[in-house]
Design a binder for these strands. Structure first.
Lengths: 217, 217
DNA sequence: TGTGAACTGTCAGTCGCTGTCAATAGCCTG
DNA sequence: CAGGCTATTGACAGCGACTGACAGTTCACA
């Protein structure tokens, strides 16, 4: 309801719709640029709306709150991952399916992002999220919502009941715990390329089994 | 720096100190009672300070923000867990040590909590945190900070370098992912006893290995 | 006992966010 | 194409979280 109205970006639609879309895009871009350049909390909603020349009230008609603007692109990335996971063949086990879904989706999200904002603006936004406590908090809450969705998806794939069998949630929890660690490390490192996070992810996912062994020596 | 000044609760100290402590305790208790009875966002800082009869400014001298009051007890619980983990014999492997630390610490936190607030007030506060988006977000951020601390502790136990070897972070990520799931399920369920979360935890932790198997069938 | 420091209250102001209401501008029907 | 309908917007007022500045009290300690 809140999301997914930017789905058909090429639909001509009426003048009204196009105007709305332009306003939203302008607000989003202005917000991200300001956030990235001077910090999230240092950026006032008034500054954003002044940059786009609309009233403050209008900003809040497009975004429920200041945070929502920061996560608009992230939202798209997550939907992309879910779609990739759905596309995995049923023969793949849960962990392998999730692993392949991340690796695959990264290969293609780029274009989807570029339709909204420049890709490197998104990269810097992600790093900002990781390094701004208030945004990080929201990011983590959103992540758990996504986890729940994924757990249900995995359960469905395996023909299980999420409430009865702990394995779907446990597997997803372990998997996304690792994903969050890599996300954080990537945000802190200096190599911001997609290749970098890809390598990091593979390396860390490979360590799940060894890390859970009773004895590491 | 922000924490751990309630460490020596029996120290007589000066009149000033005792007065401060009483004010803080009163504010904390009033805040929690109001939070659980009418909701976090529905509770105004003014209401809290009126209940204790101090100025609003004073509240913000004891708590950096409204949230901090909600997490004061949680803070203590987490310190308790870390202490329990430190006390585990070096012979125990990482996962086993963490598992025993949680189970052990639950057996004794009760008293520590009771020195600050009634235990069942804490229970209801925890459920409130889990069910209030704004608080849940902060809770998750705090959790990742704790995870980082634990990862370093585990690495130390095993004589490893956290930055070089992914296993400590991966193990902790998997472990606490599971802990969060159980915490959430416990908050949603109706059995709010310590016994309940203990059982839930053991059951879910036992599923880590099976859940990460390549094939569940 | 007096002096400095710690606490506190008061006041004013910023910022995120919401409700209301009137004005404007695309859209659609006759 | 006129005229009305409705979506979108701007202007304004107001609430609540939070902060800085200043002044008054109260404890601690020489």
């Amino acid at each position: 309801m809140t999301t997914a109205q930017q789905s058909a970006p090429s639909a001509p639609a009426g003048l009204r719709e196009r105007k709305k879309r332009r306003t939203r895009d302008a607000l989003l871009r202005a917000a991200l640029v300001l956030f990235v350049s001077q910090g999230y909390e240092q950026t006032t909603v008034d500054e954003i709306t002044e940059a786009v020349d609309v009233s403050q009230r209008t900003f809040f008609r497009y975004f429920a709150n200041k945070e929502e603007a920061a996560f608009a692109v992230q939202d798209l990335v997550e939907q992309h991952f879910v779609a990739a996971l759905r596309a995995r063949p049923a023969a793949e086990g849960p962990l392998l399916a999730m692993r392949n879904a991340v690796l695959c989706s990264w290969a293609t999200v780029g274009e989807a992002i570029a339709e909204m904002v420049p890709v490197d603006l998104y990269m810097r936004t992600y790093q900002l999220i990781e390094s701004t406590p208030a945004l990080l908090a929201v990011h983590l809450r959103r992540s758990t919502e996504l986890e729940e969705k994924i757990a249900r998806l995995i359960a469905e794939r395996e023909g299980l009941d999420v409430e009865a069998d702990p394995r779907p949630r446990v597997a997803v929890a372990a998997f996304s715990g690792v994903m969050r660690v890599t996300g954080r490390l990537w945000g802190q490192g200096e190599d911001t390329s997609v290749e970098a996070i890809r390598r990091l992810t593979e390396r860390y996912l490979d360590q799940i089994a060894p890390a859970l062994a009773a004895d590491w020596r």
